[in-house]
């Protein structure tokens, strides 16, 4: 669906995207994440054709959007971080305006308007003025506007920012629903725990470069466990035990606690525990946890 090759984008004095390449398959939900200033919004704006990069290529659904930016407009929907709405219109007028802006047939307006407002759960607000809507409702309207023309690719920049937990949860559900309708989604967000609920692909950006773009790698890394070991009192001289175990990928010693990234299975985990006890370490707790997307993200960001 999306193929990006050697994309470079410069601001005055800064290279915001530094020769990045990736591809996103049709029907996926991709989480675009990274620290502030990593280039997430710039990348999204390049994908929408709002920003023209210095070099590189972007193909969406087989269309070269740098050369033919107008051809892609019917196929993409975009929700920017601060969703802009016309406050003086009613919800119905706002949706009708978006509908007509995509040169769609007036005969189908009513149907499409009802369809989208039902999906976004704003049917009861159709006659309200936009300025009277709550933040959650405004956001729903903004999404409704961005999908009114039935795009194939939906790009959302920080859609969950400023929403309460309940709204964020229903947003996750909405993304899954839209995805079921065949829309490929790219969501930029900082809220990693929620990305995990719906994203099946990840793109991590740092300093304008892609740190990770392969979901397979994410999954394999997520197969590793985090093992936490607590001691009764601080101990020294046991690091050799950890260094000699090939299944320990990484460890951190923090006072009474050790945190291990472990790739071994349950039997090997049992042997590790036995080895530590045999060594005479005063273990009070030993437990494991599967890393989530946030653990993975933090590790990747700190690694590279």
């Amino acid at each position: 669906m999306v193929n990006v090759e050697n994309l470079i984008f410069d601001y005055q004095g800064t290279r915001a995207l530094n020769n990045i390449s990736f591809s996103i398959s049709e029907g996926s939900i991709t989480a675009l994440t990274g620290p502030n200033g990593a280039g997430k919004t710039t990348l999204l704006k390049c994908l929408t054709s709002l920003y023209k990069p210095f070099s590189g290529s972007i193909f969406i659904d087989g269309i070269d959007i740098i050369q033919k930016p107008l051809e892609i407009r019917k196929k993409i929907g975009y929700l920017q971080d601060y969703f802009g709405l016309y406050d003086d219109l009613t919800v119905k007028q706002a949706l009708a305006y978006s509908y007509f802006s995509f040169k769609l047939d007036a005969a189908h307006l009513e149907n499409r308007l009802m369809e989208v407002s039902y999906k976004l759960k704003i049917t009861d607000k159709l006659n309200s003025k936009v300025s009277f809507l709550s933040r959650g409702m405004r956001q729903r309207l903004a999404i409704a506007q961005s999908i009114i023309h039935n795009p194939r690719l939906l790009l959302l920049d920080e859609p969950a920012s400023g929403l309460d937990p309940e709204s964020r949860y229903s947003l996750s559900e909405l993304f899954r629903d839209l995805n079921k309708d065949g829309i490929t989604i790219i969501v930029s967000s900082h809220i990693l725990t929620e990305l995990e609920q719906y994203a099946n692909n990840i793109l991590i950006l740092k300093n304008g470069k892609i740190v990770e773009s392969q979901v397979e790698e994410l999954k394999s890394d997520i197969n590793d466990k985090l093992i936490f070991i607590h001691f009764n009192y601080p101990v020294n001289d046991f690091e050799n035990l950890l260094l000699n175990d090939p299944k320990i990928k990484k460890y951190e010693i923090n006072g009474f606690q050790i945190k291990l990234l472990y790739s071994g299975d349950v039997t090997e985990q049992q042997q590790l525990l036995k080895k530590l006890i045999d060594y005479g370490l005063p273990i009070s707790q030993f437990y494991s946890k599967t890393p989530n997307i946030q653990d993975y993200y933090l590790r990747k960001i700190n690694e590279k």
Binding site: R73, I76, Q80, S98, K103, Q145
Partner: peptide
């Protein structure tokens, strides 16, 4: 005003 209200990007991306 469209820049300040962040509606301009949607204008550009429309088929107007």
């Amino acid at each position: 005003n469209e820049i300040n209200e962040r509606t301009w990007d949607n204008q550009i991306l429309s088929l107007n």
